[in-house]
């Protein structure tokens, strides 16, 4: 166990080190002035350029520069955005929770809907209901997420006028920024019409969450269905049957638990898909998350923002992926080495 933990910690640290190294080298690779790419400031005079070069240690060796970069990174002094000149650290700390909130709800919906559907399909496989489940999963897996979001907007916002088109919460409600999670912020905030604000925020959440959850649910359904079908063919299920357990006992005590085991590593694999979908959906719904922020940054060629955004998102994804993989191996030591699952 300790050994396993050490291996995973080692893996995470090495990967993050590699990512930091990549992000360190990016300003040299981006087109334009290295100094501007690093700091986000266009030097107006020679004196200012010299001063900035002194700050970023551009005259020293690469190792000194890297050491300095590490220091600034860990002290939270990430420079300023090229286009808006605001601190990148503040921008990220506002944008990132919004994305995390969105993908958390999407993941929650996919787990709550996808896993039971997959189970029922797997238990009754090759029956009409299972046929419906498989059709649903193949069809919804094939939806391009941006088109799905546009369809939702057309139906629910434009035609029926039920749900808001974009944003996070109506501007009428002035929600102070605490944690960055809009639901939490509204709940702890001391504002009038709290219930209305909450209702409004939930309405804003529905369409983006559903668009992301649609594809992820399909993947969960397919994996769960396959997993339960495999488990029900195992010898210990036959043994339980021969001992005279009822179907219900066999399913809940032997089938369900064992079938759930391979689903955790599956979650780890879906995080990067989830983030990609979330980034696309955020731009469509103007959700003020990190994906929208990064894509605006690339439109404006805001290189300092791209560099930091890339580092933050990839460190988040890598840490989360490896944590879940570690958990799944710690829970299920029987699996010698986790192999990437196939759908």
């Amino acid at each position: 166990m300790i050994n396993l933990l050490a291996r995973y910690v080692n893996l995470v640290v090495l990967t993050i080190a590699a990512l930091i190294l990549i992000s360190f080298s990016l300003p040299y690779l981006f087109p334009g002035d290295v100094l501007t790419n690093m700091s986000g400031i266009v030097p107006e005079s020679e004196a200012q350029r010299a001063a900035l070069e002194g700050v970023y240690k551009l005259n020293s060796s690469v190792f000194v520069q890297f050491w300095y970069y590490l220091n600034t990174l860990f002290s939270g002094n990430w420079g300023v955005s090229f286009s808006s000149q605001e601190s990148l650290f503040d921008a990220v700390s506002i944008a990132f929770p919004a994305t995390i909130e969105l993908i958390t709800y999407a993941l929650l919906i996919s787990v709550v809907v996808g896993i039971p559907l997959g189970f029922i399909g797997g238990i009754w496989h090759h029956k009409p209901f299972d046929f419906g489940v498989v059709t649903f999963s193949v069809v919804s897996y094939s939806f391009p997420v941006f088109w799905l979001a546009l369809i939702f907007i057309t139906i629910f916002s434009l035609q029926l006028g039920l749900l808001p088109l974009s944003g996070r919460v109506n501007l009428l409600y002035d929600v102070p920024h605490h944690s960055g999670f809009i639901i939490v912020d509204i709940l702890v905030a001391d504002i009038p019409h709290k219930a209305d604000a909450l209702y409004d925020a939930l309405q804003h959440l529905i369409l983006p969450t559903l668009s992301i959850a649609f594809v992820t649910t399909a993947i969960f359904v397919r994996f769960t269905r396959r997993s339960i079908m495999d488990v029900m063919e195992k010898g210990y299920i036959d043994a339980a049957k021969s001992r005279g357990f009822t179907t219900k006992q066999i399913f809940f005590k032997h089938g369900l638990r064992n079938a759930l085991l391979p689903i955790l590593p599956l979650m780890a694999m879906q995080i990067s898909t989830l983030i990609t979908n979330a980034m696309v959906v955020e731009t469509i719904f103007s959700w003020p998350g990190i994906g929208n922020w990064l894509i605006q940054a690339i439109y404006q060629r805001d290189y300092p923002a791209i560099r930091i955004g890339m580092l933050v998102v990839s460190v988040f994804v890598v840490t989360l992926t490896f944590t879940i993989e570690f958990l799944s191996r710690a829970i299920d030591p029987a699996r010698d080495k986790f192999e990437r699952a196939t759908i």
């Binding site: 990067s272 998102v313 990839s314 994804v317 890598v318 490896f322």
Partner: peptide, 12 residues
């Protein structure tokens, strides 16, 4: 580690 980085991020 490359697998864990989202496609869109690599593209950006």
């Amino acid at each position: 580690s490359l697998m864990a980085v989202p496609t869109l991020l690599i593209a950006i």
